[in-house]
Design a protein around this nucleic acid. Structure first.
Lengths: 189, 189
DNA sequence: TGGAGAAACGGAGGTCCCTCCGTTCAACGC
DNA sequence: GCGTTGAACGGAGGGACCTCCGTTTCTCCA
C-alpha cells in the first residue's frame, strides 16, 4: 500500500519505522484538536526525532503519507461521478467530496496550513493526482460543451486549495459551499 | 497616522515603542528573504520581547500594522477605478492591484501564510476594509447588471486570499492572473 | 560464519516562539 | 514637588522545530 519505491531494497528497520511513524501520526492527527508535536509522534513510535525527519523531511510529507491512501479514494471517485452525472455536475459533486474529506481531517487541514506557511508547497504526488482527477472532469466537460475548454486543472487545484486554506475551517460549511459554487460557475463555458 | 485609538490617552512610552517596533519591522520584512525572528525585531527596536507581544499579540497583528497604511491605499483606490471603468473591469483591475501589492510584499505574504497556519485568521480591520472595497465594486456591478447580484463580498475576499495563499508566490504572476480571471468570471451574472 | 560498508538511527543542541509575572515608570491629583 | 497607581516593560523559561553527526545495525558477499 505504501509507495512502491522502485529505487532500492529498503532496509527492514527503515520500513518498520516508517510504517510505525505513519500509524502513530494517523492516530495523533485524528485525536488532536490542535497541533501535534512531531517529537511526540517520534517518541510514541519509539524512534528518535532524527529518524522521523529523515523519513519525512517536512510536516507536509508526513501528512501526505498519512492521508495518501484516503485521498486517493477521493480522486479515484471521479470516474464514477462522471459516469453518473454530466461533467459540470460531477465537478461540483467532486468538489464537495474533496471538501468533506478535508473537513473531517481537521488535523490534516491544520498541518496543511502549517506546511503552506513554510512557504514551499512543493507539488507532492497526491496533489498531482488531484490535478489529474480535475483534469479528467474538465476534459469531459469540454467535450460535452458544458465546461470551458482550456482551463488549467492545476489552477483549479490551487483555487480549491486556497478555499480550504482561507476558510477558517470551523463550521463554515455554508461559506465553503458558496465559494465552491463560484469556482464551479467560473468554469462554465 | 497610526490608529486614533479613542479609548484612553496612550502612555507616551507605549506609543514610542509601538512606533519604533513598526519601523523596525517594516525594514526587517522588506529586507528578509525568509522569516523574520520577532526577537530580533524586539531587540533592534530596543525593547523586550514581552513588549513586542503586548503590542502585537500575533505575528499577523504586527504585519497588519506594518502594511495597514499601504493596504489602505489599495482599498482606497477602488472608487477611482469605478469612476474610470465599468464595474466588471474595475473589479479585475482592482484584483491586479491587490495582487501586485501582495507580490511586492514578500515578507508580508510569508507572514500571512504563517498567521493562517496558526489556524485563526480572525478578521483584522484591514480585511474588513478589503471586503468593503470589494463590496462597493460588486454593488456597482449589480446595479449596472454586469456583475451578479447577491455575491457575498467576504466570500470574494477569502477567494482572493486563498489565491495568494495557495500560490507559491515566486514568479507565478501568470498563474495568479489566470486564477483571478476565473474568479472575476465567476462573478459575472 | 565473519566482516565491511552503507544506510539508518537517535538525540544533543541551537533557534525561535510565546507566556507569565515581578519590576519600573509615566500620568495625574494633591 | 510628591505620592499613588495602574499601565507598560523586559526577560527568564518551557516547549517545539529542525539539523548535524557520531553510533548502531542491517545486508550482502566471501
Amino acid at each position: 500500500m505504501p509507495s512502491p519505491e522502485p529505487g532500492r531494497p529498503v532496509r527492514s528497520d527503515a520500513r518498520r519505522n516508517r510504517d510505525k511513524l505513519i500509524e502513530v501520526a494517523r492516530a495523533a492527527f485524528a485525536a488532536a484538536d490542535g497541533t501535534v508535536a512531531l517529537e511526540t509522534v517520534a517518541r510514541e513510535a519509539g524512534v528518535g526525532i532524527g529518524t522521523l525527519y529523515r523519513h519525512f523531511p517536512t510536516r507536509e510529507a508526513l501528512v501526505e503519507a498519512v492521508y495518501a491512501a484516503e485521498l486517493d479514494d477521493v480522486t479515484a471517485g471521479a470516474p464514477a461521478l462522471l459516469a453518473q452525472l454530466p461533467p459540470e455536475k460531477a465537478l461540483r459533486a467532486w468538489m464537495d467530496r474533496y471538501a468533506a474529506f478535508v473537513a473531517t481531517k481537521r488535523g490534516m487541514a491544520d498541518v496543511l496550513r502549517a506546511s503552506v506557511a513554510s512557504g514551499r508547497i512543493a507539488t507532492p504526488a497526491t496533489r498531482q493526482r488531484i490535478t489529474a482527477a480535475i483534469g479528467a472532469i474538465l476534459d469531459a466537460g469540454a467535450k460535452a460543451g458544458t465546461l470551458r475548454a482550456g482551463a488549467d486543472p492545476e489552477d483549479v487545484t490551487l483555487l480549491l486549495l486556497g478555499v480550504f486554506l482561507s476558510t477558517p475551517g470551523e463550521q463554515d460549511a455554508e461559506r465553503t459551499g458558496r465559494m465552491l459554487d463560484l469556482i464551479a460557475d467560473a468554469l462554465r463555458p
